[in-house]
Design a protein around this nucleic acid. Structure first.
Length: 426
RNA sequence: GGAAGAGUGGCAGAGCGGUUGAAUGCGGCAGUCUUGAAAACUGUUUUAGUGAAAGCUAACGGGGGUUCGAAUCCCUCCUCUUCCGCCA
């Protein structure tokens, strides 16, 4: 969430940023409401502190009076304290209400976009940061979409998934399963080679964790929820990995913090039925390797580009046609200040599929999470958090199958062969 | 799931109704001494709100209560340890 200090002190910049993100007028109007609510909070706090201070002093006196045996005087003071407490209670409730209101309002505001974010409201207005300039793979006349390839080579059963669970839960089999496992290991090894620390987190998290990375309250309906235990199934490893540093104060020497983890990701995808759900395009459960960074604000944008380069390297090694987009204000996620999306070409569907999203959240998550560090002058400041998929499996599998299909079968890219143990699916 | 015990600062560990935001030790930081280092000694060392600052306020697992006053008493929830049960 946005920092209240910035909302107060740089109101115009905040408004400009929010406009770039195409927020509603209603949300823009929140800014003034927030500032006046915060004034209310401050004045209630000040008044209450003053009264508490008085009460504390009186209590000391009462103690002393009792000790010196002057019980009558003590009794008189007691009634005075009783009055004060009455007053304190009213300020207390004002304060609590103001805090709740503030929280509720601030949480509705998305992050401010970085200055390099293009204006725009639709996906078409995203900037092609790096286009694919090489040849597109030329598929033969009998080229198939990945769901047919999956069936033809007995790699994935969508039907069995429906039997076991429902749509969007595919069952991987044989070389399909082996390919999944190979990709997971490949991506993890690449991340480790790049200096990331491997983490195996829980797949279920509590409310507090889901809130800290911003999944709650705004994405509540997108997560699977275990009511009996009040746990959420993670929609991405970002949630547990980032939360590892919730409520901590880092030393400057702790940077850089580089985490990676493989997890299945669970998404209800409520409201997205109908389009783009064929095959592996959109699933309720898919595998993903995530990279997460906690960084000094001075370096976070360099780190973002470093992460972009890492993800790009993976796609190159998988020999897949890809492009990189810089998302426009309206297409960016709620939390992000700058996002690069990676898309690979689905040769048979003839469209680009998003396989990675790499973002800098600046202090948006760390503010909610209270992730701070001690700067050069010993001052406590919020750290920057970043994350990216490196990489999301299902769509990678889809484009891998489609792009590398030949008359003889599906060719496995060289970099992956050591992991699969075979070089052709036939 | 049942029983008992425990949760205090970076760590260890006192305090169990009043000047204790918290003894003491370790660690960290700064300094004295030293050619340098170690040792020793001195000082310093939580976070948050508010304020220009001094200061004031809050926090001893979370929440609530008793009291003029709570780290200390009561209730409740959570977590950990040990024992029992169940189980990959």
């Amino acid at each position: 969430m946005l920092e209240i200090g910035i909302i107060r002190e740089e109101k115009e910049r905040v408004l400009a940023g929010l406009r770039k993100k195409n927020v509603s007028d209603e949300q823009l109007n929140l800014i003034d409401k927030i500032i006046s609510e915060d004034d209310k909070r401050k004045s209630a706090q000040t008044k209450m502190d003053l009264l508490l201070s008085k009460t504390n002093k009186l209590s000391d006196e009462i103690g002393n009076l009792f000790k010196s045996g002057r019980a009558q005087e003590a009794q008189a003071l007691k009634s005075e304290v009783a009055d004060l407490k009455e007053e304190i209670r009213t300020h207390e409730s004002v304060l609590r209400e103001a805090k709740e209101m503030l929280d509720e309002m601030i949480i509705q505001l998305p992050n401010l976009p970085h200055s390099s974010v293009p204006f725009g409201s639709k996906p078409e207005e995203n900037e092609v940061f790096k286009a694919w300039t090489s040849e597109m793979p030329q598929l033969g006349p009998n080229a198939l979409p990945h769901w047919e390839l999956a069936e033809k080579y007995n790699l994935i059963s969508f039907k069995d998934g429906v039997t076991l669970t429902g749509s969007g839960f595919p069952v991987y089999k044989n070389k399909g399963a082996r390919l999944q496992r190979a990709l997971i290991n490949f991506f993890l090894d690449e991340a480790i080679a790049a200096g990331y620390q491997e983490i195996q987190p829980p797949l279920l998290v509590n409310k507090e964790t889901a809130r800290a990375t911003g999944q709650l309250p705004d994405k509540e309906g997108q997560m699977y929820y275990c009511e009996k235990d009040d746990f959420y199934l993670i929609p991405t490893a970002e949630v547990p990995l980032t939360n590892l540093y919730r409520d901590t104060i880092l030393q400057k020497s702790d940077f850089p913090i580089k985490l990676t983890g493989y997890t299945p990701c669970f998404r209800r995808e409520a409201g997205s039925y109908g389009s783009d759900v064929k095959g592996l395009n959109r699933l309720h459960q898919f595998d993903k390797i995530e990279i997460v960074r906690m960084e000094h604000p001075d370096h976070s944008y360099n780190v973002l580009m470093e992460m972009v380069a890492h993800v790009e390297g993976l796609l190159v090694k998988l020999e897949l046609p890809y492009r990189i987009l810089r998302l426009c204000g309206g297409d960016m996620s709620f939390n992000s200040a700058l996002t690069f999306d990676f898309e690979t070409w689905s040769a048979a569907q003839e469209k680009w599929l998003e396989v990675s999203s790499v973002s800098n959240f600046e202090t948006f998550q760390s503010n909610r999470m209270k992730l701070r560090f001690k700067d050069e002058e010993g001052k406590t400041r919020l750290a920057h958090t970043l994350n990216g998929s490196a990489l999301a499996l299902a769509r990678i599998v889809a484009t891998l199958l489609e792009n590398h299909q030949t008359a003889d079968g599906i060719r496995i890219p060289k970099a992956l062969q050591a992991y699969t143990g075979f070089d052709l699916i036939s």
